[in-house]
């Protein structure tokens, strides 16, 4: 392993929690919007709080709630939410060394703390050459979990008073964050073709083949990675 694990877990977790704060602001706004939706889906504040802490996957919670609001039933809501979450299989697989050789409770905690945002931020810091690892990921993830739970419960409790995030441009916060993180993951020209493959597969499978976005996302990631695996040099 190229990166050494930092010697000071609490300090590393604290750094992770602090450095994820700009993204946590975006998460809080997204969470308020989810709370409003959850109120339409007849969720209680208790249910929203429990769901936030135990599921801890915003996109899946939103899609499942949308299905319930549309009257689709529990099974359809579950399938839609879990289909979107299948990408997390690739997310945790891609940082396998972070969890390697740890006791079971740390693996469980680390798995639960892994979100698109905490994962991507840790990778971005590593791309800058900082030796961040497991505790940085957990610190960032737990910070997001607290922000997510508090803001979703506030959202469901004050649903009638919350303005539309879109009118403030806040719906664009995550797209912009992931653009910044993609920039920091860029290692050079060998990334160009795999990234282009991923981009074209996502756009093509949604626009031309009419595939659901949650499946096209997985297909795009796998296609780009497969291209890099087959064509890259050692």
């Amino acid at each position: 392993m190229a990166l050494t694990q930092p010697a000071d877990p609490p300090a590393d977790a604290w750094r992770g929690a602090r450095e994820i704060l700009p993204i946590a602001v975006g998460v809080a706004i997204y969470a308020l919007a989810f709370g409003v939706l959850a109120a339409q889906a007849q969720f209680s504040a208790l249910q929203v709080g429990v769901m936030g802490a135990s599921v801890f996957a915003g996109g899946a919670q939103i899609i499942a709630s949308q299905q319930l609001v549309a009257g689709a039933g529990a099974v359809a809501a579950l399938v839609a939410g879990l289909a979107l979450n299948l990408r997390l299989l690739l997310v945790t697989a891609s940082i396998r060394e972070v969890y390697a050789g740890r006791p079971w409770w740390q693996i469980a905690l680390g798995a639960h703390a892994t979100t698109d945002e905490s994962w991507a931020l840790m990778l971005a810091q590593r791309a800058k050459g900082r030796p961040v690892g497991y505790w940085y990921l957990v610190g960032g993830g737990m910070c997001l979990l607290v922000v997510w739970c508090v803001a979703t419960v506030v959202g469901v409790a004050f649903a009638h008073a919350i303005p539309d995030p879109k009118s403030l441009g806040m719906d664009f916060a995550f797209t912009a964050a992931f653009i910044a993180i993609a920039r920091s993951l860029w290692k050079g020209r060998s990334d160009l073709l795999p990234w282009l493959v991923a981009l074209l597969v996502v756009a093509g499978s949604i626009k031309l083949a009419g595939l659901a976005p949650s499946w096209s996302l997985i297909l795009g990631g796998v296609a780009g990675a497969a291209f890099a695996g087959v064509t890259g040099d050692a």
């Binding site: 990408r87 690739l90 997310v91 697989a93 891609s94 940082i95 396998r96 698109d116 994962w119 991507a120 990778l123 995550f174 797209t175 992931f178 653009i179 993180i181 993609a182 993951l185 860029w186 290692k187 990334d191 795999p194 990234w195 493959v197 991923a198 981009l199 597969v201 996502v202 756009a203 949604i206 626009k207 976005p213 096209s216 996302l217 795009g220 990631g221 796998v222 296609a223 780009g224 990675a225 497969a226 291209f227 890099a228 695996g229 087959v230 890259g232 050692a234």
Partner: peptide
């Protein structure tokens, strides 16, 4: 840990992030 599978897994994070951006821009 070596060979095509490992290369693919190393490329996976960047490709997933690009896919996330592409997915949100397509709509």
């Amino acid at each position: 840990t070596t060979g095509p599978w490992a290369r693919g897994l190393r490329a996976l994070p960047g490709c997933l992030i690009v896919s996330l951006v592409a997915m949100s821009l397509v709509s």
